[in-house]
Every structure is written in C-alpha cells, then in structure tokens.
Amino acid sequence: MKRIMAFVLSLTLLAGTAFGANLPKLRVGYVPEPAHGLYFVAKEKGYFKEEGVDVDLFQFGSAAEGLAALKAEKLDVGTFGTTAPLLFISRGSEFTFIGGMMIGGQAIITRPERLAELSGKNLKVYKGKKIGLVKLSTGDVIFKGALKKAGIDYKKDISFVEFGTVAAVVEAVKKGAVDAGLVYPPHFSLAEKNYGLKVAHYIEEFYPDYTCCRIVAHTKEVNAHPETYRKFLAALIKAYKFYKTNPDETVKIYTRALKIDEDIIRNETYVKRVAESNPDPLRKGILDFWKHIQEAGYITQDYPIDRHINTDIYKQALDSVIKREPKDKIYQQMLTFYRKQN
C-alpha cells in the first residue's frame, strides 16, 4: 500500500512540476508595503497557477532599484509607486501601466498639542504652516494636487521642508521642526504607536480614490503576450475578492509576508482602512497624477502619457472572472468602479 501511495505521490509531483513548467512565467517586483498584499494572497492561495501563470515574487528596498531591474529586463512586472514609473517613462522608458495595487494611503501627522489647530474638513488649516515631506513621494504630489484643487497656492501659502526619508519626516514632526508631516503606511501607525504622534488627516479626505502604486510592465511584452498579463491580473482580481471577504486570513498572509506587527496591518487594512489594495488601473488617476507632477515642476516636458496606459487587459481579466461568477457582488462592484475610474 505504501508503495502504491508513494507511486501516486510521485506521479502527482511530476504532474505538478510539469504543469508549473508549462505555464508562462512572470518575474514580479514589489516593495514591502501592506497595501501591496494582493500579490501574497494570489501566491499563497494558488490563484496565479489557477489562472495559468507562474509568478515569482521579488522584494525590493526602493522604487529606483526595482525600476532599474525592470528596465534591465530582470523583471517582467513591477509595482513601484506612481512617481517613479512616470519619471522613467518621461525619460524614455517603454513601460505600460496595466493595473494597480494600492489606492490612497497617505496621512498628515502632527504632535498631539497641534491636533486641534489642524482639525476640520478644510485644507486651509495648513495655510502658513511648515510641512515636512519626502520629496517626490505620492503624498508630496497628491497633497499639492489637493491643495491646488482647493484653490490654495501652495507655492506661496505653505512652506514645505523636503526630507530624504519618511523616518526623517517623523523625526522632524516629533521635534517640532515642522508643524506637520506627510507620511505613508505603516509609518503613521508606527509614529502613533511609538511616539504618540497623531494623524490630523488622511489625504483621501480631500482627494478620494487617488492613485498610488501602479503595476507596470514592458510595453513590448504586454503587446506580445497580452494573455499572460490578463491571467496575471485575473489572479489579482480573485485575490482582491479574498481580501474583501476574508480579513483574518488576509491579515495573517500579509503579516507572514511583510513581517510587520499584525495589529498594525489589521488596523490599517480593516479598521482605519487607510489604503485599499485594488488592482484597477485607475487611468484617470494616473492622468491626474501626471498633471500634478508637472505642476509641481518635477517633470517639465509635456508628453502623451495616456499611450503608456493599457486598461483593456484589466477589463478582459475582469470580464473573464465575471463570466465564471456573474452574480458575484464584489466583481460587479469592481466593474462599476472600473467604469468610473477609467
């Protein structure tokens, strides 16, 4: 009996290996942020293989390193913010946005004694204030975009102090060197937990559904193998449903993958909902971001960025998943969201 079991197991392993070996492979780069967790869910739950794509995940410590690897064709896909890929594209890199990974997520922190002064629903509370930020971060670009939308001339009315790291921003807020600081997850949770700082606002309050962290790939590969990328995105769409319907297991998957405090992940992901992991490409959001990054003076030349956004593959992936489960409410919500945002 044991021999028969061993034989069956060997056959199963061989079949599994052959099955994996025949699938198209994608090397996917990411940075370790909690809201990038759909990759871990899709991997751990087997959605990539179910959809017919074999994915290897590679973690990077910075967007620049990740995009350099993508440019050097050591990666096929990457999620490295929004600013960084736009900068690379503006300098000639042939990348295409095919999806997203994170919406929102930036917060403004301050010292507890300054909280009352900065409360309220109007961005005018920041006029005349000194605000620390990480230059070229999503928060930098989007907060300036929100100020402009609110009719505030940020170049005149607000003093920005640029720092190289988010840790330096937190330190400046802590010491009172700035009135407030723009930070991203999980730094505001860490700042609250470790230093007693307070979140004055989430930028989402002033700028709903703004884009963060997009999925980019080589334009020529996307055009040559659209089906592979469709399968990849279909797996992420299924991971999104899992994340929306299985909070406890999702938190455990994120925690295992990122090795960040489980309470912080649960709090940011499901209690405060500071960011949403969502694979939608958010075409309109990318175009808005491009406009804001130009207004901030970081990219000076004009360029038809829309030609680097491909929403068709995501739509095909969503359609393929909906075809299998046409009555699923989550997928229907994703379709409604897609129609609004693209």
Binding site: L87, L136, D140
Partner: peptide
Amino acid sequence: AVCVPDCCPPVAKKR
C-alpha cells in the same frame, strides 16, 4: 535634484 524617493517600512529595508 530629481531623485526617486525611498518607500517601504524600515523593518523591511534591504538597503
């Protein structure tokens, strides 16, 4: 300077 910023939680930084 126009430099791509760092991201990521400090615990996970490889750099």
